[in-house]
Design a protein around this nucleic acid. Structure first.
Length: 263
DNA sequence: AATATTGTTCAGCA
DNA sequence: GTGCTGAACAATAT
């Protein structure tokens, strides 16, 4: 279920489990998830090193080993890292497995193989090549940055929030929740938003991200007041007596309440 | 059995 | 060039 909040916690998880241990082996079960590199490339660059640190940008996770190449993980729609000891605990959809000298394993587990595992010479260069916009959760992503990006943008607000080249990190679910909490129709024309509305949107975005990160970390459900807890066509709106509707924006199914989210 | 799905990328079009 | 739509990728859950 990976959007930015999940990625924040994937990073925490890998930091807490998989750093500073020698990599004994890299096993690739499905090389479809590899992009621009082979299983041999992965093994050659990672076996014998240890993972020293990680960093996150948008929905990408960078693992920095004790050599000059970075391991890059993108989890697609269904990926997650899983750390385990016994091979009997190996997740069913482990596409790539890193085996450590202490006997533990880190699996790149990904049901649908829409994710990506690759190597990068340079994290900055990789981000540049992907043409990712500024990460919405970094400290320097302030309101002025947010406003400037949207002031120069035309089209629908949901498309803008989900456009990784405009700003990186938000996906379909996060954008639905932000727009619900801020009471904007997903198809609102960005050009119609004034400064106060943009400020509201920015503040709501940060609140939703913090809430989702905290809930995901504790394994808790989101509050009932969230549309994500009621994200189904025909469901009752948690805030008014409206009915949740499904809508297609930017090729994705979005959910919203037509009664309290106006254009 | 039909339809849904948290992501990215590309083609074609206005 | 910008932004939209639909399709493709794949494998499950309901």
């Amino acid at each position: 279920m990976p959007e930015l909040p999940e990625l924040v916690n994937y990073k925490n998880y890998i930091d807490a489990t998989s750093l500073h241990q020698k990599v004994d082996a890299v096993t690739v079960n499905d090389d479809q998830v590899l992009s621009h590199c082979t299983a041999e490339d992965l093994a050659k660059n990672l076996v014998g090193t240890s993972f020293e640190s990680t960093s996150r940008y948008g929905k990408y996770l960078f693992v920095h080993p004790t050599n000059d190449h970075d391991l890059v993980l993108h989890f697609g729609m269904t990926g997650e890292p899983v750390y385990y000891l016994d091979e009997s605990k190996e997740p069913e959809f482990s596409r790539v497995i890193f085996a450590f000298a202490n006997g533990y394993h880190l699996a790149y587990n990904c049901t649908r193989m829409l994710g990506e595992v690759t190597l990068a010479d340079d994290e900055k260069q990789f981000i540049e090549d992907k043409e990712l916009g500024p990460d919405v959760y970094k400290d320097d992503f302030d309101f002025e940055t947010f406003r400037e990006l949207l002031q120069n943008r035309r089209g629908m607000i949901k498309s803008a929030l989900m456009d990784q080249e405009l700003m990186a990190g938000l996906g379909n679910e996060c954008s639905d929740e932000i727009l619900y909490q801020a009471r904007f129709h997903p198809k609102t024309d960005v050009q119609n938003l004034d400064t106060d509305q943009l400020r509201n949107l920015y503040k709501t975005m940060n609140q939703v991200l913090e809430q989702k990160i905290a809930a995901d970390l504790k394994g808790e459900d989101l509050p009932d007041s969230y549309i994500l807890a009621n994200r189904e066509e025909g469901a009752d709106c948690p805030r008014c007596d409206g009915t949740i509707q499904r809508i297609t924006v930017a090729g994705r199914s979005g959910y919203y309440c037509p009664q309290c989210q106006k254009r």
